[in-house]
């Protein structure tokens, strides 16, 4: 493991009853890169994220984050180390306004350590900080949107709220579980610069995606999963040229050609 590796995953195995969801999956993520994870439906991508962040106990394997062993730790401890995740099915607090949603992560030990008891340090209280974060992520500050109940927000804003929850923890690494899914083309188009900006801020990103074209715009390396096993890993063009990958996406060749048209 080199010094630049922020995340090192070795031989994760996980089975649900008779189904082998993950089998000996290993990969490294370098500091500052955008790492993509792709694969057909049911290939174990979300399970992989759940195992890394501690939401599911893996059967065997090790996860090192910044050289520290974090395998089998509870999810809240892992999040406090700066390794955060978004959920594919958004999990906002529906009964709270959008900006109050962020007060929960701002109350975590990590955010408190960095922001003091009031949460914002010199910047004010947690409410002010959460409005700042929301503006950064694309909620218009002077509109009503940040003050609306999360239950009344459309999918695009909820996806942003998921990312905002991660940002509130001031993370070093975000595992994004399909942030583009369920969004319209124009919403995706406005999300991509956001991802690029996060990368420029020095945050490492691991992205699970089905929207390959958008993913390849930002990702420097991708890994392909199929039936819980790692098929290949490398730069996007090389990976998509791989015969095994084409086989896994059987019947999707046309889609893949389309991906490189742009």
């Amino acid at each position: 493991m080199s010094d630049e590796d922020i995340l090192q995953v070795t031989n994760i195995c996980k089975s649900f009853g008779g189904v082998q969801a993950l089998l000996n999956v290993s990969f490294n993520v370098q500091q500052g890169e955008v790492f993509g994870i792709i694969g057909p439906n049911g290939s174990g991508k979300t399970t992989l994220i759940n195992c890394i962040t501690g939401f599911i106990k893996m059967d065997s394997g090790k996860v090192f984050y910044k050289g520290k062993d974090i395998s089998y730790k509870p999810p809240n401890q892992i999040a406090n180390l700066g390794l955060t995740r978004t959920f594919q099915i958004m999990r906002p607090y529906y009964s709270l306004p959008a900006y109050k949603n962020l007060i929960v992560p701002l109350f975590s030990p990590r955010a408190r350590r960095k922001g003091g008891w009031r949460g914002g340090g010199k910047l004010g209280d947690r409410g002010t900080v959460s409005i700042d974060i929301l503006e950064e992520i694309g909620f218009e500050r002077d509109s009503f949107v940040p003050y609306k109940l999360a239950s009344s927000l459309p999918t695009g804003y909820l996806k942003r709220l998921e990312l905002a929850r991660c940002l509130a923890l001031r993370p070093d690494l975000i595992l994004c579980d399909e942030v583009f899914s369920g969004l319209s083309m124009s919403e995706i188009a406005s999300m991509v610069p956001l991802i690029e900006k996060l990368q420029m801020d020095g945050i490492t990103l691991v992205m699970i995606e089905h929207r390959l074209r958008e993913l390849f715009r930002v990702a420097s390396r991708v890994m392909v999963l199929n039936f819980g096993e790692k098929l290949t890993e490398g730069i996007p063009e090389k990976v998509m040229a791989d015969e095994k990958v084409k086989e896994a996406y059987l019947g999707s060749e046309k889609l893949l050609d389309y991906t490189f048209e742009a």
Partner: peptide, 24 residues
Amino acid sequence: EDIGLVFRGVKDNDQAVRASGLSI
């Protein structure tokens, strides 16, 4: 209060509270 919002977060979505770095 802020801690009360955490309580309400636990009610709404406990997994998101864990992902926020708080022990439910």
